[in-house]
């Protein structure tokens, strides 16, 4: 019951953005990927999800023993992979409620109502998807839709960016509940704000220029990176100073 990236290389418009990433995430584990802007964090998650805007140009993605490298995103979704997008597109005419209902039909939904309340999305269910949503509303709606998929693997792309403190707490509780039911989680963050609210993170990976250059427990990595920044922090971590 594993996600495994084997020397994964990902291209965006013929430019190699991910340059050989290998990673293994077991059931119930939370992995965090940190890195500066443009290091390839979102591209990595897009490739695992199978979005068409990115192309795997080398290596492979294995999920539960199955090579899914060439599988379209909707089939990956059926296998239980779900992505909370960093910047979901605004879709006019399609209400959050419409997507919720269509997804409930696909995945079944025994706790839709309680989920809408937990993430406080009930007040904007009838609004057009992401149109005019605040930062917090967008992230909550994204996590809500992700949770409707009842995922085996949740890919969370900067759930804490542009979000107020209350929303971060709410999002963190939702992520905890995912983890508690055994979902593997890969969480990408730029600010790290949400990490303080999570009770357990198994591993933090530092992604620089498309490569994982350092991986360790959060207690080791985070204080150094957030204090010294990526460049100096890495020198300290790698040099063992």
């Amino acid at each position: 019951m594993t996600l495994e990236l084997v020397n994964l290389r990902v291209c965006v418009e013929d430019r190699e953005v991910i340059k050989g990433v290998s990673l293994r995430v077991e059931r119930g584990e939370v992995h965090v990927v940190v890195g500066p802007n443009g290091s390839g964090k979102s591209t990595l998650l897009s490739a695992i999800m199978g979005l068409r805007k990115v192309k795997v140009c080398g290596g492979s993605i294995i999920f539960e023993g199955r090579d899914i490298t060439d599988m379209p995103s909707y089939e990956r979704a059926k296998l239980g992979i779900a992505l909370a997008h960093q910047n979901p597109p605004e879709i006019k005419g399609v209400r959050l409620l419409d997507v919720m209902n269509a997804m409930a039909k696909k995945y079944g939904c025994s706790d839709c109502t309680s989920l809408t309340k937990t993430l406080l999305v009930d007040s904007f269910l009838s609004r057009n998807l992401f149109v005019g949503f605040s930062g917090g509303e967008k992230k909550r709606a994204e996590l809500f839709l992700l949770m409707l998929q009842n995922p085996e693997l949740a890919l969370l792309d900067e759930p804490d960016s542009g979000v107020d403190v209350e929303s971060i707490g709410m999002l963190a509780r939702a992520i905890e509940s995912l983890r508690n039911r055994g979902t593997r989680i890969i969480l990408v963050t730029h600010t790290g704000a949400i990490m303080e609210k999570l009770s357990r993170i198994n591993k933090v990976h530092v992604l620089i220029d498309g490569r994982i250059v350092y991986s360790d427990s959060p207690d080791v990595v985070l204080p150094v990176i957030f204090k010294l920044g990526f460049k100096k922090g890495l020198e300290v971590l790698v040099g063992g100073v």
Partner: peptide, 12 residues
């Protein structure tokens, strides 16, 4: 395309 890609990632 971005909207299609988005919905496909939701299982459509």
């Amino acid at each position: 395309e971005e909207e299609i890609d988005y919905l496909m990632s939701r299982g459509f």
